[in-house]
Design a protein around this nucleic acid. Structure first.
Lengths: 191, 191
DNA sequence: GTCATTGTGAACTGTGCAGTCCAGAATGCA
DNA sequence: TGCATTCTGGACTGCACAGTTCACAATGAC
């Protein structure tokens, strides 16, 4: 951490993020990381605290990106459309392989709860921020604060469920239809 | 496996199940298992194939129990009530500590997808059976087969979400209200 | 060319793991 | 009592892992 580094640190973190996202924390070995990041063991420890520190950095970055995606959607279309588009596009990611990796935050909660509670709590906090964004969108769409809170919580359940479901490699229709059903219900609950 | 054993095999499997359920496969060491099961290393390998074999046995047992619980509820009350009671009672398990462990099938899908795909697929199959049970209940309640399929898929998403959410140690209300909201919507979608 | 900075490869430590093996203790039956 | 069955503790193998260290190679500025 003290020594300056020459390689592109941010790019290296991105590559690590992909691995952690796909395989989880425990199943990703240092050797996996080094070969993906294209740096040597020694450089790794010069640039990062340790494996766990790098993981935290990836977790925070993942959360930041997810929020950016949501905000971009929100700026481009009506609030409920923005949410639905987020669910359909970025969570399923039908076109990209990434679609099957689920949500790194959800994965982390499940993997680390009871194993490394600090990591689990950090991921859970990020999820809380995202849920509040859902809530704000629903209020924008005309729901009462209380109703928006309920629906946002339900949406987070569905969100978490999709992330699990996306790991089951079921046919795409099995993912898309329940999302459509869910938003159909949400729209009629608001209006 | 060949040698006969003296201890209560079924009870030992139950104790292993609790550990695997709470901690996952990778985070549960053989030493953890042995001390929980109250047997020695040697007896373990005389009675079970290996750690993985025992895990499969636990997975199947967990699935069987879950289905039993659903069938018991279904025999005692109207179909949608049975589902709601299953969600509220057995998934959250607000009273028992078990409530925070989530669903072993969901946990396994998430932990093992990409690490041991055979285990993940087995857990996913069990989830499929449960989803078909949801569907049958919804048809009993008067939904068309197609509608029942959609709602069952959505319900499985919520189910999976709850299991994630239950690991986040949020206040209980945060769990119960979205379930009520969900079933409220389902009832109005059927009638 | 010189020299400091930065990255590399490989060896090494220590730890924890699953799985094997066996001598002997405990148990239970006749 | 004697004998066979069953279980135990512990030693042991072999492996994978995270993290440390260091001599040396590459790079780049002057």
């Amino acid at each position: 951490m003290a020594r300056p580094i020459g390689f592109d640190r941010s790019k290296a973190v991105n590559r690590a993020l992909v691995l952690f996202w796909r395989q989880g924390y425990q199943a990703t070995s240092l050797v996996d990381l080094l070969s993906a990041m294209g740096i040597s063991r020694s450089s790794f420890y010069a640039a990062f605290i340790d494996k766990r520190g790098l993981f935290i950095e990836c977790l925070d970055r993942f959360s930041g990106r997810t929020l950016e995606m949501l905000e971009r959607s929100r700026a481009e279309m009506p609030p409920v459309d923005a949410l639905q588009s987020f669910f359909e596009g970025n969570l399923l990611g039908a076109r990209s392989a990434k679609g099957h990796w689920g949500c790194m935050l959800v994965n982390t909660v499940l993997e680390m709860a009871g194993v490394d509670d600090e990591l689990a709590a950090r991921a859970s906090q990020h999820l809380g921020v995202i849920q509040r964004f859902f809530q704000a969108c629903l209020e924008d769409a005309g729901a009462t604060p209380s109703r928006a809170e309920d629906l946002a919580a339900m949406l987070m359940l569905v969100n978490e469920g999709i992330r699990v479901s996306s790991r089951r490699r079921l046919p795409d229709a099995q993912h898309m239809r329940p999302i459509a059903t869910t938003f159909q219900m949400i729209r009629s609950a608001i209006s």
